[in-house]
Design a protein around this nucleic acid. Structure first.
Lengths: 251, 251
DNA sequence: CGTTAACTTGACCTGGCTCAAGTAATGTGG
DNA sequence: CCACATTACTTGAGCCAGGTCAAGTTAACG
């Protein structure tokens, strides 16, 4: 049975947060860590396929992803779906729901996802007592906007092949920075339907486009997902410059 | 000659900020206003057609638009352009440039634009001394993300006609909340090329699509721009629910 | 071992693109 | 105040990228 479960026990106390091991992340000061320990109210595991944040819901929480893959999406009334972005470890989600009345998008897990849970009504207190952390949250919001800008450029102006290449290059670089790339290869638990809904294409055309990338050796469809094999080819086809290599905060 | 000029004189001291007259905006507390007066370093006027924020540049400023129209955009190396969003009075711009190393998009004025200028290196001080204002900035960043989500859904999954209808309904509602709609009509200083680059379509097809909207009485092309005439028709064609009617902060 | 979900493939269609040739309005220099 | 250039908007013709429909093929799962 697929569900979302809260765990009473803390497998990952903030001082031992698995995220801080990556060079990509800015480490917290000691006092920040102490504060965050109190800000955090627990952990949550969402099974693959669970929509654990729903559009329109008034969620009382804010999350940081500790591990796993998820995606943010919106749908039109007749069911057409657009995937807005993917969610990887270190990403903060549910901020919209905390600041505005409600979330305007949903989030679904693509693999088991471990979440660090924060109480949203403690957010004003965070802003009052830890300006440095408030700054980090704003930084993360701004980064999400930057990613969306790039995705929108891609969906609006790139061809199907360029768009697909960009998508996998983008995912590859993000995953690499959180240690998910092994042997220069990356497994992504995606269905082709996800790719189609990300690129704004039909599944049939997506399939044909992906075949071309596969023929170039850029990727391979395996068991229940996709293996990204050649970042250089993807960057070349898409004409994308790659992500700026700046250390980033997390909460 | 088109240029961007800084004015030594303050036409709009914060206590008399023209934006605060709109019910749509949350008013500032007295102490916040005093702080903002010091945070503000001047005013700037950008002529129509000026790109006053350039991708890649390391701008030392942060701006709030006091009046006028502008748009944010990105381009691919071969010149293909995607307009990401429009900028209206009350919008905060240049935040990305302040938080990360540099801006990843450009901004161009579509009409004369009056900007309120803030010094970016004073931002950490704002976070330290006025958590409420820091919260407002985060709110604004989150709102921009929310708008982008909706635009991406539109470009990715709506048909040309729905997309165009959505765009004008969206612009109409935003403009309405800052008092730019008179007699239920709105003039927008847009070229059809802007519309094409926003919707991810060619100019030819954009022209044909706009004709359909004009035939339905939704809008009309006039002198140097477009007049939006019927919000209801636009909402109907697009199937869009409209913007949440929540009061919003500004800086 | 039958069922279902996911991926393929081919045939055909169409929304949107490109090319090309207008028209209309505005702006500029003489 | 006219002549000519320029910029924006139109329109038609033909094409093609990507969509739809339909029928397989796998491969996992109960």
């Amino acid at each position: 049975m697929k569900t979302t479960t809260a765990s009473a026990v803390r497998q990952f106390p903030c001082e031992k947060c698995p995220l801080q091991e990556f060079a990509h992340f800015q480490r917290h000061e000691k006092d920040e860590l102490e504060f965050l320990s109190g800000f955090k109210t627990g952990e949550l595991v969402a099974d693959a396929g669970t929509t654990f944040l729903v559009e329109g819901a008034n969620s009382a929480h804010l999350f940081t992803v500790l591990s796993g893959w998820a995606f943010r999406y919106k749908t039109l009334e007749d069911g057409r779906r657009q995937i807005l972005n993917y969610v990887l470890p270190g990403d903060l989600i549910g901020l919209q729901g905390s600041l505005m009345k409600e979330m305007q998008h949903s989030i679904e897990a693509m693999s088991p996802v471990i979440l660090c849970v924060f109480q949203r009504d403690k957010l004003p207190n965070l802003f009052r007592t830890f300006p440095s952390l408030a700054y980090d949250i704003t930084w993360l919001a701004s980064r999400e906007e930057q990613m969306l800008d790039e995705i929108l450029l891609s969906v609006g102006r790139r061809t199907a092949l360029e768009r697909a290449a960009y998508l996998f290059a983008f995912i590859f670089q993000r995953a690499k920075s959180v240690g998910m790339v092994k042997d220069d290869k990356l497994f992504v638990p995606l269905k082709q339907q996800h790719v189609a809904d990300t690129l704004g294409l039909s599944i049939v055309h997506t399939n044909k486009t992906l075949k071309k990338l596969a023929a170039r050796g850029a990727l391979r469809w395996v068991d229940r997902g996709c293996e990204v094999l050649d970042e250089a080819v993807l960057l070349d086809i898409s004409g994308w410059q790659g992500l700026p290599k700046v250390p980033r905060p997390f909460i």
